[in-house]
């Protein structure tokens, strides 16, 4: 069976760093607190014997948070935390809702009669996942692929400031692009 101590330690650290996300002032620190929370959760996943998914989580979250730091500093009013300011609204109501949900979930966790363990972990959980994704769960995998492709298209469309339809008209037939500052050499 699993050793309990690392699971407790990783879980507690994940919760603490998760709470720090909303306590720290500096946006860079906030992002790295979130990264720490993800890494401790990846540690839990590794402890549970899911080597591949744990490593995927680590790699993906490190890259994602490094990108997020850039966006945080771009869009936040107080990126370095030098001017402490309250960025909260409706704190009391939200705390009541979140606390109520946590209590309800915890009560449910300990009241529900969880089913007995069915089966044994495979010798190679990565192989089992791969065979499942390329076999019985192929539809899930295809849906995920399609969703990711739609995300690529949609995020580019949303983030584009002036695309070719703005510059060359709806039918793309304009002779000269309609730019705020015309370029070229005047011919």
């Amino acid at each position: 069976m699993l050793s309990a101590v690392p699971a407790w330690v990783f879980g507690a650290l994940a919760l603490v760093s998760g709470a720090l996300v909303f306590r720290l002032d500096s946006m860079a620190k906030v992002t790295f607190a979130l990264l720490a929370s993800f890494l401790f959760v990846a540690g839990e996943v590794l402890l549970l014997g899911l080597g591949y998914l744990g490593v995927v989580l680590v790699l993906m979250m490190v890259m994602e948070m490094v990108i997020m730091v850039v966006f945080m500093i771009m869009y936040m009013m107080n990126p370095a935390g030098l001017m402490p300011m309250a960025m909260f609204h409706n704190t009391r109501g939200s705390a009541a809702i979140a606390g109520g949900i946590f209590i309800a979930l915890t009560v449910g966790i300990f009241l529900v009669d969880w089913p007995a363990r069915a089966g044994r972990p495979p010798a190679d959980s990565t192989l089992a996942l791969g065979e499942s994704l390329m076999g019985g769960q192929m539809l899930t995998m295809m849906t995920l692929g399609l969703a990711l492709f739609a995300t690529i298209v949609a995020s580019v469309v949303l983030a584009t400031h002036r695309g070719r339809y703005d510059r060359f008209g709806d039918d793309l037939r304009a002779d000269h692009p309609d730019d705020p500052i015309p370029g070229g050499v005047g011919r």
């Binding site: 309990a4 879980g11 994940a14 998760g18 929370s37 839990e44 945080m72 936040m76 009013m77 705390a95």
Partner: peptide, 30 residues
């Protein structure tokens, strides 16, 4: 149960953040 309680705690912290934060980026962190 231990793992589920940790998961519930993370969910509650995230929900609190998503409800309270005024910045859109911080909301996404929640």
């Amino acid at each position: 149960e231990l793992f589920l309680v940790i998961g519930a705690g993370l969910l509650a912290i995230g929900l609190f953040g998503a409800l309270t934060q005024q910045s859109v980026v911080m909301l996404m962190m929640g």
